[in-house]
Nucleic acid binder design. Structure first.
Lengths: 200, 200
DNA sequence: TTGTTTGTGTATCGATCACTACATAAATTG
DNA sequence: CAATTTATGTAGTGATCGATACACAAACAA
């Protein structure tokens, strides 16, 4: 039995994409329902009937962000031939993604709710979990590089992973403050310059 | 002529300090007047009579933050014997300041209004200006190090400054996410590990 | 056609937002 | 003692917050 009642008058995915951009630009709390419905081209009852609540919409927007925007940054970590290439790609792809021009600057996961004490703890926790996952991803890749002989057994994989995600997070602030793609790429290169010293 | 009418019933500096902690923890927009007046132990009319507005109170809180909390991080940049020592101290002092225990984690300047599209543009711009000033401070110190012969003339002082402030900003996110002092110190050491490669 | 189901638009809801009018309290000045 | 000045507490202001009640529109099933 396909759809029963009146069909939806708008594209759910397109509306979600618009909502993602609003959350990305303004953050969770500062994105009002008026902002969201205006950007999505629908009225509040349609939003609630389709997505449930502002928070549920946000979680869907985060999932879409991770799937579309985040993938270009993180997807090659596992498949890159070396840990060095994997992390260099993460930082360079970050510089590119944060200055694309047609999307908000910086990372939604980092910038959308950094306060942790806002009205909605679940929103903060979800973003925090995503940030942590990125660090774990890098740490796993570094551990694999140790197993495969790319890096010495003495490598402090956790410290390196923390360091590189810290740079990646800091690049969000720089991007929001207007840093150019060239500046972000130079920051990435500076960060990678510690590779030799940290893996020997 | 010392004070004329009824004397103020609370300590202005103490109240400002309390307000600073609220803004530091919750950010500008998420800090409601109810939060502020509760923490400050006063009613709204006293707040407005003394500080003018929420925004004016915030600007005073930022100034107090820079003066008290930020000084321990940035004050030795000019006086440190070398640029290397100056920046190493910035990062180590950052790790210490962000995990003090009796103050909120991370930097108020970075975390209090990262969205730039919130209701109040002047608040965002003021914080952005403070962030930029930190980068310029580092860049000036690096240029001086080139003049004094500590660093070669080929050093890209602007790139290095951008890189180290990026790490310093990223540490705010890590601190908010619960990173320990040891973790932040290790991140600082990783960041400094690129010094040799970047200055030769 | 009639009944059922689902989506949409209008017009709100109570709660909270930053902010303030107003009367009173507490000090100095004459 | 007034008279003046400043601060405080109560009780609100209009605006906006996230979220909905409700009537109607548009599809299908019978």
């Amino acid at each position: 039995m396909p759809q029963r009642g009146r069909p939806r008058g708008f594209d759910r995915e397109e509306a979600l994409r618009r909502a993602m951009e609003v959350f990305w630009t303004r953050g969770y709390d500062n994105a009002s329902l008026a902002d969201l419905t205006r950007a999505m081209g629908i009225n509040a009852p349609s939003l609630y009937a389709t997505f449930g609540s502002k928070e549920a919409l946000f979680h869907e927007a985060v999932a879409l962000y991770v799937q579309t925007e985040g993938s270009g940054i993180w997807e090659q970590v596992e498949t890159a031939p070396t840990a060095h290439a994997a992390i260099a790609h993460v930082l360079h792809a970050t510089a590119e993604a944060f200055t694309r021009g047609d999307t908000p600057r910086g990372c939604m996961i980092v910038l959308a709710a950094p306060q942790m004490q806002g009205a909605n703890a679940q929103v903060c926790d979800a973003l925090k979990a995503h940030r942590k996952e990125n660090g774990c991803l890098l740490e796993r890749r570094l551990r694999r590089a140790v197993e495969e002989g790319e890096l010495p057994a003495s490598t402090d994989c956790r410290a390196l992973a923390s360091y590189f995600v810290t740079v990646q997070h800091g690049m969000s602030i720089q991007a929001r403050d207007g840093a150019s793609r060239e500046t972000l790429l130079r920051i990435a290169d500076c960060a990678m310059a510690s590779w030799e010293a940290l893996t020997s």
